[in-house]
Amino acid sequence: MKVDHSFFEEVSARSGQDLSRCFHCMCCSGGCPVAHGMDYLPNQILRMIQLGMRQEVLESRAIWLCIGCYACVTECPNRVHIPYMMDALREIALHEQVRIGEPDIWAFHREFLKQVGKRGRIYELEFMARYKLATGNLFQDAVMGMKMFRLGRLELLPSSVKHKEIMKKIREACDE
């Protein structure tokens, strides 16, 4: 069997990680607080990259569930930075328009970044409303939301940077 190395090289380059250092001790997966919800464990994802399993990796749920908590980085005897690897994988998945393994999490990121792009700051009320519309989870947490609101823990009005065009310029500078 011949293994296609192009995916391995692409992820290594994009994440700045030497993924060949991993010897699959599974310390990363053992320390990962969300491993129990993943379809593949963090070290399995890494192994699949080594084996060139492009589509399975990019469509996995695991790459979206990683919250970048750095627990695995502390555990890894070879200092492989798994969260940087996961960042790179999500970027490639979006770029290649594959099926997204966790559409709700992607909706969260997308709506958050729309807020940032629009005014440079997050307006929580609008952000949560838009996230709910995007995912259809209209009533999930409605009671909790009302409670936060009553307690005065949500701002009524949005705030923003002085000149909103700057946010567009920043976006454009990294999309080039």
Partner: peptide, 25 residues
């Protein structure tokens, strides 16, 4: 003065360069 959101988790999750520029500003 005139700070902007650092990008939090979403920016680095899907576009690390964007995260760098948002925080960098």
């Amino acid at each position: 003065e005139d700070w902007n959101c650092c990008g939090a988790s979403p920016a680095h999750s899907v576009n690390p360069d964007y995260a760098t520029l948002l925080a960098g500003r």
